[in-house]
């Protein structure tokens, strides 16, 4: 009966993951391997293809007021602003997912905020890996593909922004998790009882213990040939914290040195006093 409860929990998390996130790993992998039957994504590999691509690839955030003034800014700044808007959208999606985790909305409201503040970037970089291969990353809901070399060719410090995420994604993708595994994994990340400033740790740890059991069983059932997958995946949580720390340091540097650039208020809120 306990196993049945854990399976039901994993199923519930997978369902809300499908409802909360716009582009799943299954869809992204189909696009990346050309198996969708739809047209292939537009490849952005240099400044020319970036300019051409802008006509084909629609950006949701173009409808956001205040974006008009961005058009006169340097390419690096414009690209970064689009990344930011996608991140803000991702925070909204992750919040919706978090609220669907059984027990989450019963936690102290300030603790919910703290869990999201510390968890969202770790979740963003785990799910971003689904959109990446060693050569590039899908953008704009899979309509475009931006190459890793192009991102590396941007001027400093923008060229340093994505490379650590590619390095992580290559290792993370070798674990071959699918969306149903990722759903439980990101619930485990969100419910981390060791985030700084939590008021009431015990109920968070209790919820996470249950999620960890659900994750262990999920991996056993879904990957019977990979006996150490659970342990390997838990190790990735340490790598994620390192990536987030470096990411936040880079954003703080950008905020100081790139005076043309506005950091979105939601991202400022999340980054402030983070690490």
């Amino acid at each position: 009966p306990e196993c049945a409860d854990l399976r039901a929990l994993a199923k519930h998390l997978y369902d809300s993951y499908l409802k909360s996130f716009s582009l799943t790993k299954a869809k992204a992998r189909a696009i990346l391997t050309g198996k969708t039957g739809e047209k292939a994504p537009f490849v952005i590999y240099d400044m020319n293809s970036l300019m051409t691509g802008q006509q084909f690839v629609s950006y949701k955030q173009n409808s956001v007021p205040g974006q008009g003034q961005e058009q006169n800014k340097e390419v690096e700044i414009q690209l970064f602003q689009r990344c930011q808007f996608r991140s803000v959208e991702a925070v909204r999606e992750i919040t919706e997912f978090a609220k669907s985790i059984p027990g989450f909305i019963g936690l102290d409201l300030n603790d919910q905020v703290t869990l999201l503040k510390y968890g969202v970037h770790e979740v963003i970089f785990s799910t971003l890996a689904s959109l990446m291969n060693k050569d590039g990353v899908l953008i704009s809901d899979g309509q475009g593909f931006m190459t890793r070399e192009f991102l590396k060719s941007l001027r400093k410090p923008f060229c340093e922004l994505m490379e650590p995420k590619f390095e992580f994604s290559v290792k993370f993708n070798s674990l071959e998790l699918d969306d149903s595994d990722l759903a439980v994994f990101i619930a485990v990340i969100i419910l981390s009882g060791d985030r700084p400033g939590l008021v009431n740790v015990k109920p968070i740890e209790d919820l996470q213990d249950n999620m960890l059991q659900a994750l262990e069983l999920q991996l056993k059932m879904n990957h019977p040939d990979a006996p150490h997958l659970f342990a390997k995946l838990l190790q990735k949580m340490t790598d994620l914290r390192q990536i987030v720390t470096e990411h936040v340091q880079l954003l703080q540097l950008l905020k100081k040195t790139e005076l043309e650039m506005n950091i979105h208020p939601l991202l400022q809120e999340i980054m402030k006093d983070l690490y």
């Binding site: 007021p65 205040g66 925070v91 919040t95 503040k117 208020p265």
Partner: peptide
Amino acid sequence: KEKHKILHRLLQNSSSPVDL
């Protein structure tokens, strides 16, 4: 609470658009 007002709002409202 003031420090994280957008996060609070996201948690308390369902799918509210994030304004700038």
